[in-house]
């Protein structure tokens, strides 16, 4: 139960410190694989229900969306930027938030649950940190997708697994978040051209 969670955490934390926006599809894919693994193995032996839910997560979150995001980022001028600006202050805040997130999970009685709470809270915090430190729309879109993955991991905290229609709805929301976000973000002009005064000079 711990391995997929640790993998998920690594896929969340590493890109924040060392990743570029263009590499984020890979990290999103890794997060989703860990999420799928966790879903399949969460309630003991894999059942038809858990296999269905896990495969659906892998199909939408680990394959479809990262693939489309990679294609979209290939055309985007801001894709070469860092996912989170590389400076000591942002790094310090990120580390503090991750520690706080795991403190948040300390109130639980078992280690596994504390880890799970910590991972979810850390991912949401990291997503909020990216949103507050990076004004590049593609990075903000990636942060939103991080947040959606964290919310999907929330199922692990529930006593019963969610029904398959609930999984399908969450995956549909994930895909729609990507699709709508990508449509809105993809059309943004780079900052140098965004000034209306400068735009007037473009024929």
């Amino acid at each position: 139960m711990h391995t997929p969670l640790i993998l998920f955490l690594i896929a969340t934390v590493v890109p924040v410190f060392f990743g570029k926006i263009q590499s984020s599809p890979l990290w999103l894919c890794l997060q989703a694989l860990a999420l799928g693994w966790n879903t399949i193995t969460l309630h003991g032996e894999p059942s038809l229900h858990s296999l269905g839910a896990g495969l659906e997560i892998i199909a939408v979150r680990a394959w479809l969306v990262p693939l489309l995001l990679r294609r979209s980022l290939a055309r985007h001028t801001q894709a070469h930027l860092d996912l989170m600006p590389s400076n000591l202050f942002a790094w310090g805040v990120a580390i503090a938030l991750i520690i706080l997130a795991f403190k948040f999970g300390d109130g639980s009685r078992s280690d596994g649950r504390a880890l799970m709470l910590g991972v979810i809270a850390a991912t949401v915090m990291i997503a909020l940190l990216i949103l507050s430190t990076n004004d590049a729309p593609p990075a903000q879109l990636v942060a939103l997708l991080f947040m959606e993955n964290a919310l999907a991991l929330f199922e692990s905290l529930m006593p019963e697994p969610w029904p398959l229609p609930t999984h399908a709805v969450l995956s549909a929301l994930y895909f729609l978040t990507f699709a709508v976000g990508n449509w809105l973000v993809g059309s943004h002009a780079p900052p140098a051209l965004a000034d209306p005064e400068q735009m007037k000079e473009i024929p």
């Binding site: 979810i120 949401v124 997503a127 909020l128 939103l144 929330f154 976000g181 943004h188």
Partner: peptide, 23 residues
């Protein structure tokens, strides 16, 4: 579209905070 994107971002943040409440 920039305004729509900001609307979506704010909404997602608000809903993420709500979700943390569920957690």
């Amino acid at each position: 579209r920039r305004v729509a994107w900001r609307y979506m971002l704010y909404s997602s943040m608000s809903l993420a905070i709500t979700f943390l409440g569920f957690m």
